[in-house]
């Protein structure tokens, strides 16, 4: 399951719910409140769980136009964005993100939407790092972030980056699979 080609599965333009999605949804249903943004919503499945299982008002975003349409078909409010760029300062009480995190050899990238949904660049943190650097701006003063981290992406590096951005970090979910351990971090 660590190979991008394996993860890609059938030819499709939108990442479909998998173990990581379920872990994030489970944590988000427990911790999300108020106005909630899911960045990189993909199929919209996680955002839909939060919208139906909690009182949070949910907005979903993705860079991929196919994902935006799929999420909108679930009845979600959707905005096509680059991470949190078009949202106002202090806008959200909760932000959730299951980032593309698989470390990828630049020689092996194939340049379609599914790669964008999976690949975290050489480090695995090519999308996660700019997210951690920018998410604080759109969080309300007592807001929180729920972000999925894989051991493949470098757990300690992600915690360190979040702490350097001024967040207190708590691991609220952890599950181990044959080739990786997935965690959900709560940043406050």
């Amino acid at each position: 399951m660590t190979d991008l080609a394996d993860r890609r599965g059938v030819e499709t333009a939108v990442y479909q719910p998998a173990e990581d999605s379920r872990l994030l949804a489970d944590a988000a249903v427990e911790h999300a409140r108020g106005l909630t943004l899911e960045v990189g919503t993909g199929s919209g499945w996680v955002a839909e769980q939060v919208a139906t299982e909690t009182d949070a008002r949910v907005v979903a975003s993705d860079v991929n136009p196919h994902a935006c349409r799929e999420a909108r078909d679930r009845g979600l409010d959707v905005v096509r964005t680059d991470l949190v760029a078009p949202f106002r300062d202090d806008a959200f009480d909760t932000v959730c993100f299951n980032p593309p995190y698989l470390p990828t050899d630049p020689e092996n990238e194939w340049g379609d939407w599914m790669e964008r949904a999976l690949s975290g660049g050489e480090s695995g943190r090519a999308v996660l790092d700019p997210f951690l650097d920018s998410v604080g701006r759109v969080l309300a003063p007592d807001g929180r972030v729920l972000v999925l981290v894989s051991s493949l992406t470098g757990f300690d590096e992600v915690v360190e980056r979040a702490e350097s951005e001024g967040f207190a970090v708590e691991e609220v979910r952890q599950e181990s699979y044959p080739f990786e351990t997935l965690s959900i971090l709560l940043l406050e």
Binding site: V79, D82, R88, A91
Partner: peptide
């Protein structure tokens, strides 16, 4: 999009 989203959206270039 719901019109109420205007409360949280801004220009991605300069946040205006």
């Amino acid at each position: 999009m719901k019109e109420s989203l205007m409360d949280i959206l801004c220009d991605p270039l300069d946040k205006s």
